[in-house]
């Protein structure tokens, strides 16, 4: 059996404005699995997300990252996206003047997944309905004047419409009330399947109750210091990070 497309991160180091944030991250996320990445503030979670997607501000200083047998690091962000990577932004960017519908069409076209107009609009309508996004948002400018919750739902709408093979969800659950969280989690659940791997970055275990990750990793000081199953998330929920981080710090390097 051929190996499933897998996101492979090995000893990844990355710096922002000269300051090293990632200090040797190791991670494997195969398609068909949901992996949660947790960790306290400042542990490097968002940096890892941006670095994997190829934001020019994040400089890789060592290690490697690949997907489906391709080296990601020499690729630009749009090339990574065309390889199947997707990033749901923690703080999605507003682009005034560019409507959601035009943006999605441009993205589908770039990904080689262009649909006939009617089919595209039907897909869009049904996905929007599932995510409880008002039809009016089709003609609104991307993220322009959206509330925090609307932005997050719009990220998941893009995930549903663009159908990547590896999605990094960067704190998609933050800033959501309980109902919005359920809607967003259900939206993610609908895309979960054999063809997609998900790296779910989160602070809280609540969304994990909906998404049931196959693995949970803890990032600390730019390194994965603990990995386990769902029980690890539950332990963090009840005890906080300190016992785990303390144990990791005490372990031989």
């Amino acid at each position: 059996m051929p190996e499933r497309p897998t996101l492979v991160v090995e000893g990844l180091h990355a710096a922002v404005e000269g300051k090293e944030i990632l200090r040797g991250v190791d991670l494997r996320v195969p398609a068909g699995e949901v992996h949660a990445l947790m960790g306290p503030n400042g542990s490097g979670k968002s940096t890892l997300a941006y670095t994997l997607m190829g934001h020019p501000k994040y400089e890789v200083t060592g290690g490697r990252a690949g997907f489906d047998g391709h080296d990601l690091l020499p690729l630009s962000a749009d090339e990574r996206a065309r390889l199947g990577l997707f990033l749901s932004f923690q703080y999605p960017t507003a682009i005034p003047g560019v409507t959601t519908v035009n943006f999605l069409r441009a993205a589908l076209k770039a990904l080689g997944k262009e649909l006939p107009a009617r089919q595209f609009l039907q897909t869009l309508s049904s996905e929007m309905a599932t995510l409880k996004i008002d039809e009016g948002f089709r003609a609104r400018y991307i993220n322009d004047g959206f509330s925090g919750g609307e932005k997050k739902r719009m990220e998941i709408l893009q995930l549903a419409v663009l159908r990547p093979r590896m999605a990094i969800l960067d704190e998609t659950d933050s800033g959501l009330d309980i109902d919005a969280l359920r809607t967003v989690a259900e939206g993610v659940n609908r895309v979960i399947g054999e063809d997609i791997g998900i790296l779910l970055i989160t602070h809280y275990s609540r969304i994990l109750e909906y998404l049931r990750p196959d693995a949970v990793h803890v990032l600390h000081h730019g390194r994965v210091v603990a990995s386990g199953g769902h029980e690890l998330a539950r332990r963090i929920e009840s005890e906080g990070y300190d016992p785990i981080l303390g144990a990791a710090a005490g372990a031989p390097a």
Partner: peptide, 11 residues
């Protein structure tokens, strides 16, 4: 803005 669009595959 540019990165956001690029991250969706747009060249």
């Amino acid at each position: 803005q540019r990165f956001y669009l690029e991250s969706r595959g747009v060249p």
